[in-house]
Design a protein around this nucleic acid. Structure first.
Lengths: 342, 342
DNA sequence: TTGAAAGCGCTACCAG
DNA sequence: CTGGTAGCGCTTTCAA
């Protein structure tokens, strides 16, 4: 019933006519330097715009001005506390800067991610923020860098989160150091026989955390036996699956497990419980990221704090200000809770 | 060191020249109907584009074509499992439809939300999806509806999630019914003296769930005493604060608490524990939404399942297909777990 | 302070 | 199949 043929939205032209002024004046009054327009006219134009429900065509503005008010954020998954916290920070900073955020989810493959960057570059955004990437060692790496270089050559800003191996401004999370200190702390608590739940070394974050953990243990005189590691998805369900495997193979040779992120660790805890093993008692568990849920599970999860929201905010700010390809190291902090021995 | 003056990105013109064909041919080969171009030329143009790192200016395309490939998603907070799950679904469907998603976070005020809709309408998106809104009873309501009506009059699609009181296509979550059935189930388990943790009735979702819960109890012959209700933020920390208040005033008159969403319920559980009260034992707790964490806390949280990701996906699909302002009711399902009596 | 008009990068129509 | 060109909605000189 409401199916009238779409009537095109009013243009600046319509507003000008309605207000009885010229096109140029209307433009100035609405979106330009209104101070160069007689007050009465400004009012007239504003009124006409409201009456008509005028909303400036952002694409037309972009093309005429030669610039946009857009920023692009690329994440691997938005329903993951790690990324959604970062996204919240990015959104906060974007709002402060008057930018609109376009979010892309690149959860499948490096190819898709490359494709996304290429497309989104076409938006001519002011900044591109890459949080979490599968590109690291992949075949697409070169093309990816080229794409972003081209973007930067045209005046675009790139900030990468956590991936210090790309030649762009980077907010580098100290994954290695955090994991290393976590290992030392756990050894200090008396844990000796460790397992690691990780996602394979193609995910840079997983690789760095695993390496840091192993090195920390080594410093404490403990050797990490790779046969006690389990590789699974970087997700809650990955963690659960790992728990099942662990339960099947028996946990007699373990007294603590480090999962390379909290989401996995929490899934692991639930999975252990399903298998009749009490996490924190039968087997200590530690994660990484210190997402909000870490403090809400029982026993509360030992983790390594990463100021994710803050990182998102700073990534946006860096993109907007820094000229260089500087690398800023974000410190991480071990947070001991009940899931590991006291 | 890398600070050369930005060289403007290559245009189609550059590509055409590089390929030795006309502007029009280049356009056709790249973004138009390539089948109307001799294969050799297509190849030449593609090669030139790659060589130059050409990416079509999306705004220019939008303006020339008169349409975009954009969809807009408005949420109240992205770092909240409720919204991020919906966002994941929206993203999934958007990708399938070849759309780019612009996400706006409207966490402050109805005014800001109105402002956002107005701005984003300027993007001329194909669809606007509103998930969670503070507009419901507010003063801005009329202006908000006008804004969206204008958008729709120009051929835009609007889908609202959960807010069945706006005159747009709606994916209505059965908040009332779910809460009502939850109340009946809890009464069936033997719980008698209930408290409710809510966020005030200006948040439609909170109001509906509270009302449904009260009505369900009434059917079971139980009267909900409003003095046992606590109003707090719609967040985890809101729930924690409620727990503190509850602990202070004493929980002697309660044997179960319903928090109007899981995030609050989980914060409540943590807060109770901090106060030395064992949730699920001293006091039963139930939530709403059945977010992933609900199954991961201990005791596992009784809740009402809402298929959030699915809702996001369907919202996008509805926006793209449905012509009408139909209202689709999404059923919810009570999930009993250990946080309530067995 | 105003209006006219030249673009911005691209699509699509019209001739050839 | 190809090239020329008139717009798309807006900003921003340039003159008046």
């Amino acid at each position: 019933m409401d199916d009238e043929p779409p009537r095109p939205p009013p243009t600046l032209h319509d507003v000008a006519r309605e207000a009885g002024v010229s096109y140029a004046t209307a433009s100035r009054a609405l979106n330009g330097s209104a101070r160069n327009v007689r007050a009465a006219n400004v009012a007239r134009v504003r009124a006409a715009a409201t009456r008509l429900g005028y909303a400036p065509h952002l694409s037309a503005q972009a093309i005429a001005r030669g610039s946009t008010n857009t920023a692009v954020l690329i994440v691997s998954a938005i329903d993951d506390p790690y990324f959604s916290s970062i996204a919240a920070g990015v959104g906060e900073a974007a709002e402060a800067a008057g930018l609109i955020v376009t979010a892309a989810i690149a959860d499948r493959s490096p190819e898709l991610e490359l494709q996304i960057v290429r497309t989104l570059r076409g938006q001519r955004p002011r900044a591109i923020i890459i949080a979490g990437s599968r590109i690291a060692g992949s075949r697409t790496r070169r093309a990816f860098i080229d794409e972003l270089d081209q973007y930067r050559a045209a005046g675009g800003r790139v900030t990468v989160i956590s991936q210090a191996d790309l030649p762009f401004a980077t907010l580098s999370i100290d994954n290695y150091g955090g994991a290393r200190r976590l290992a030392l702390a756990l050894a200090g608590l008396g844990h000796r026989r460790f397992g690691v739940i990780h996602s394979g070394d193609h995910l840079r974050t997983s690789a760095d955390r695993r390496r840091g953990f192993a090195d920390g243990l080594r410093e404490a005189g403990i050797t990490l036996d790779d046969r006690r590691s389990i590789r699974c998805d970087f997700t809650r369900d990955g963690g659960r699956r790992a728990a099942r495997l662990l339960a099947e193979r028996g946990t007699g040779d373990l007294d603590a497990v480090f999962a390379v992120n909290d989401t996995m660790a929490i899934g692991l805890m639930t999975g252990l419980r399903d298998a009749g093993l009490r996490p924190g008692t039968a087997l200590a568990v530690a994660g990484f990221d210190d997402i909000a849920s870490a403090a809400d599970v029982t026993p509360a999860l030992t983790s390594v704090r990463v100021p994710l929201r803050d990182i998102g905010r700073r990534a946006m700010e860096m993109a907007l200000t820094s000229d260089t390809t500087e690398v800023v190291e974000v410190p991480t902090e071990v947070v001991l809770r009940e899931s590991t021995a006291r």
